[in-house]
C-alpha cells in the first residue's frame, strides 16, 4: 500500500526521517546562493498555499521555496477564499484537490486542521502551523540552524522561553529536539507553562536565570500581546522583567551559546536589542534556512521514490470492545 506523504507534525517522526530532511536542506542552501536561484526539479508541479490565518514570513518562505524549485504556486488566504462564503474547510480542500495540486501547504488557526485535510485528501499536506498544535517546518529550520552552528545536536541543552502553552513552535521543537537527543528546558511563568509539559520529556523552569545556565541554545518565543488581557501575566513590562533575555543573563549560558527566535520579535519584551543584534543571534540565518528547509520538504514530499514523512500520527484508539 502506498504511504500517504504528509508533514503534519514532528511528534512521532523518526530521527532518520528528520535527518533526511535536514540533509536535503543542505543541498538546497546552495541553490539559494547561486546567481540563478532556480532548479527545474518541480517543474510542472503545483503547490497550493492555503493560509487561513495571518502570516507573512511563513507564506512568503513557502512561496519562494516552491518557486526556486520551479513549481507553480497558488496562494489562498482566509478573506478572499470561499471559506468566507461559508464553505467548510474540508469542502474547500476537496475543491482544491479536484484541480490536482501536487501539495497543499496549510496554515490554520485551529489545531488538527492539517490532519483533517490529510484524512480527506490524497495529495501531500504540509502543516504550516495549526493552532497551538504543531509547526513542523519552523522546528526543522530551527534544527537545521542549530546543526549549522553546532557539530552535534545530541547532548545539547536547548532552552525554550515564553508562552509555551499556546506555542506550536515550542511543541514541534520539543518533539524534534528530543528525538535527535538534545535536552530541552522550558521556561515561562506557570500560567503559560503547565506541569503537563514535563510528561513530554522536558525540564520546566520558572526562573530564566536557572534556565539559561550552561544552555547551548536559547530559543526565545514571541509573546503575544493579546495574552495580556487574559491575565496570563500582569503586564508586558512585568513579563519583560522576568523573561526578557538580556546580555547580562546570557553571560551564564554556555560560552558559544546561540540565540534563535522564530519572529516576529518584540524588542525589549522577550529579547533585548543587545541580544537580538548581538553576535550569537542567528535569527537571519533562520529566515534564510527557512527557504532551504521548505524547499527540502516540498521536494521530499512531492517527488516520488521517497518514503515520505508522515508525522503526527497519533494512533486512533484501536477498535475497542465493551465485552468485558
Amino acid at each position: 500500500m502506498e504511504r500517504k506523504r504528509h508533514l503534519l507534525g514532528l511528534e512521532g517522526v523518526s530521527a532518520e526521517d528528520i535527518q533526511v530532511l535536514l540533509d536535503s536542506a543542505e543541498t538546497m542552501i546552495e541553490i539559494s546562493q547561486r546567481d540563478v536561484k532556480k532548479v527545474p526539479v518541480l517543474r510542472g508541479k503545483t503547490v497550493v498555499n492555503l493560509f487561513l490565518e495571518n502570516s507573512t514570513r511563513t507564506r512568503i518562505s513557502f512561496e519562494i521555496a516552491a518557486k526556486r524549485l520551479s513549481a507553480d504556486t497558488i496562494n489562498l488566504s482566509g478573506g478572499g477564499s470561499s471559506l468566507s462564503k461559508g464553505e467548510t474547510l474540508a469542502d474547500t480542500a476537496r475543491n482544491l484537490a479536484a484541480m490536482s495540486p501536487d501539495a497543499i501547504v496549510i496554515r490554520h488557526p485551529s489545531a488538527g486542521a492539517a490532519i483533517l485535510l490529510a484524512e480527506v485528501l490524497d495529495c501531500p499536506i504540509i502543516n504550516a502551523g495549526d493552532g497551538a498544535h504543531e509547526h513542523p517546518t519552523q522546528a526543522l529550520l530551527d534544527l537545521f540552524t542549530i546543526r549549522q552552528a553546532k557539530p552535534e545536536l545530541k547532548g545539547l541543552t536547548v532552552t525554550i522561553v515564553g508562552d509555551i502553552l499556546h506555542s506550536r513552535v515550542a511543541r514541534s521543537n520539543i518533539y524534534g529536539l528530543l528525538t535527535l537527543g538534545a535536552k530541552v528546558r522550558l521556561c515561562g511563568p506557570p500560567t503559560l507553562l503547565p506541569p503537563m509539559f514535563e510528561h513530554l520529556g522536558a525540564e520546566l523552569h520558572y526562573d530564566l536565570a536557572t534556565a539559561v545556565r550552561d544552555a547551548d541554545v536559547m530559543m526565545m518565543l514571541r509573546i503575544q500581546r493579546e495574552r495580556q488581557g487574559h491575565n496570563f501575566f500582569p503586564t508586558l513590562d512585568e513579563y519583560a522583567r522576568y523573561f526578557c533575555l538580556t546580555e547580562e543573563l546570557l553571560a551564564e549560558a554556555s560560552s558559544d551559546v546561540i540565540i534563535l527566535h522564530p519572529g516576529p520579535m518584540n524588542r525589549g519584551i522577550e529579547i533585548s536589542s543587545g541580544v537580538a543584534d548581538g553576535p550569537y543571534s542567528l535569527m537571519m540565518n533562520q529566515v534564510a534556512n527557512g527557504v532551504a528547509m521548505r524547499m527540502a520538504v516540498l521536494y521530499q514530499l512531492i517527488i516520488p521514490g521517497h518514503d515520505g514523512i508522515r508525522g503526527s500520527e497519533i494512533p486512533e484508539r484501536t477498535p475497542t470492545s465493551a465485552t468485558g
Binding site: G112, D130, H133, R168, M196, H199, I314
Partner: peptide, 12 residues
C-alpha cells in the same frame, strides 16, 4: 479536558 492530551493536541 485540560491535561497531557490537550497539551499534545494543542487544543484549549
Amino acid at each position: 479536558n485540560e491535561g497531557l492530551m490537550s497539551i499534545r493536541l494543542g487544543l484549549e
